[in-house]
Simulated scan of single mutants.
Amino acid sequence: MNTYSVKELYIYPIKSLAGIRVESAKAEEMGFENDRRWMLIDEHNQFITQRNHPILSQFYPMVIGSKISINHHDKKHEFLINETLNEPLFSKVWDDETQVVEVNKTTSKWFSEALGFDCKLVKINTSGDRKHECTKLNTTINVSLADGYPYMLIGTQSLDFLNEKLEEKITMARFRPNIVISSSVAHEEDSFGEFQIGTVQFKNAKPCGRCIMVNTNPKNAIVKKEPLNTLSTYRKRDNSILFGTNVICLNEGKISVGDALVF
C-alpha cells in the first residue's frame, strides 16, 4: 500500500496574489484560515484575477501577527486582519453570489495606485456569505473566495511527470495548491475518496479544470503557452484540462507538513 505525507502547505490570503508557504495551517470549512478571505474588485464590483492582470503575481503578502503586509516592488502596505468597513457589498465569484466588505479606503487606494485603475480590497467575513453548489457530491458547501472549492491538493509526481515533458521546467507555484503530498504515480490524487490528515477529515470533490493562469510565470508575470499546451495532450477530459484535485474538509483542525494521509 502506498503511503502519503504532506510535503508543502500554502495559503493565498488575497485571491490571485502570491501565496505563502507555511509549516502548519488551521483547516476550516471555507478553506485554511486566512486563505482567500480577501479579493480585489473593480468599479463594477467584479472580481479581479491574474487571468486579466498577470501583474497580481508580483504582489507578495505576509501574515505578521494581526496584520497582512503586502510587498510590491519597492512599495509596501499593511492592514489589520480583522479590519473592515461596515457597509456590505455584493459581488460574485463566477456564478456564486457573495457578500463582502471593503477593508478600508486607504488600502483600496494603495492597490488602485499600484495597479493603475480603480479597485477595492474586500473581505468575506462570515461562513455562509458565499455558497457553492458541488454537483459531484450533490451538496452545497461554504467557500471563501477561491474559484470553486476550499482546497487544492496535488501530488508531487504529477508535477514531476509534467516536467519530464517540458523544455522549461516549472514549479508547483504555477498551480497554486493548498496541500502538496508525496506521491509515486502521476495524478493518483484524482481517485482519492475520503482521507484524514492529522485530526481533519477531507473528501475529494473532483479533479480541477485548469485555466490560463497556469501559463503565468509567478516569478516575473510573463505569460507563455506552457504548460497548458503540453497538459492538453494528455490531461484533457471533455472540455477541461485537469491538474490537481478539489477537496473539501469535514471538520476543523490543524494540519502540518510531515503529517501522513490516512485512508
Score class of each variant (00 low, 15 high):
Lys7Asn: 08
Glu8Ser: 10
Leu9Tyr: 09
Tyr12Arg: 10
Lys15Ala: 03
Ala18Lys: 12
Gly19Asp: 09
Gly19Glu: 10
Arg21Glu: 14
Glu23Ala: 10
Ala25Ile: 07
Lys26Gln: 01
Lys26Leu: 08
Gly31Tyr: 00
Phe32Gln: 00
Arg36Gly: 08
Ile41His: 07
Asp42Ala: 00
Asp42Glu: 05
Glu43Gly: 11
Gln46Arg: 11
Ile48Asp: 05
Thr49Gly: 11
Leu56Asp: 07
Leu56Tyr: 14
Ser57Val: 11
Ser57Thr: 10
Ile68His: 00
Asn71Tyr: 08
His72Asn: 12
Lys75Tyr: 11
Lys76Asn: 09
Leu80Phe: 09
Glu83Ser: 00
Thr84Gly: 09
Asn86Gly: 14
Glu87Lys: 11
Asp95Ser: 01
Asp96Ala: 01
Thr98Asn: 01
Thr98His: 11
Val101Tyr: 08
Glu102Gly: 06
Ser108Gly: 06
Ser108Phe: 05
Trp110Asp: 02
Phe111Ser: 06
Phe117Lys: 05
Cys119Thr: 11
Cys119Asp: 03
Lys120Gly: 05
Val122Glu: 06
Asn125His: 12
Asp129Glu: 12
Leu137Arg: 10
Asn138Ser: 07
Asn138Ile: 10
Asn138Tyr: 07
Asn142Asp: 12
Tyr151Pro: 05
Ile154Ala: 01
Ile154Asp: 01
Gly155Thr: 06
Gln157Ile: 02
Ser158Glu: 02
Phe161Gly: 03
Glu167Ser: 03
Glu168Asp: 14
Glu168Val: 13
Met172Trp: 02
Pro177Tyr: 03
Asn178Arg: 15
Ile179Ala: 12
Ile179Glu: 08
Ile179Phe: 15
Ile181Lys: 13
Ser182Asp: 15
Ala186Lys: 15
His187Leu: 11
Glu188Tyr: 05
Asp190Val: 08
Ser191Trp: 13
Gly193Lys: 11
Phe195Gly: 04
Ile197Asn: 04
Gln201His: 11
Gln201Cys: 03
Phe202Leu: 00
Lys203Leu: 14
Ala205Cys: 04
Arg210Gly: 07
Ile212Asp: 07
Met213Ala: 09
Val214Ile: 15
Asn215Trp: 14
Pro218Leu: 03
Lys219Tyr: 03
Ala221Trp: 06
Ile222Trp: 01
Ile222Thr: 00
Val223Trp: 04
Lys224Leu: 10
Glu226Phe: 11
Asn229Leu: 04
Thr230Gln: 03
Arg235Lys: 12
Lys236Ile: 07
Arg237Ser: 05
Asn239Thr: 08
Asn239Pro: 07
Ser240Lys: 15
Leu242Arg: 05
Phe243Gly: 09
Phe243Arg: 06
Gly244Cys: 08
Ile248Asn: 04
Asn251Leu: 06
Asn251Tyr: 06
Asn251Lys: 00
Lys254Asn: 09
Ser256Tyr: 13
Gly258Trp: 13
Gly258Phe: 13
Gly258Ile: 08
Asp259Phe: 14
Asp259Cys: 14
Asp259Ser: 15
Asp259Glu: 10
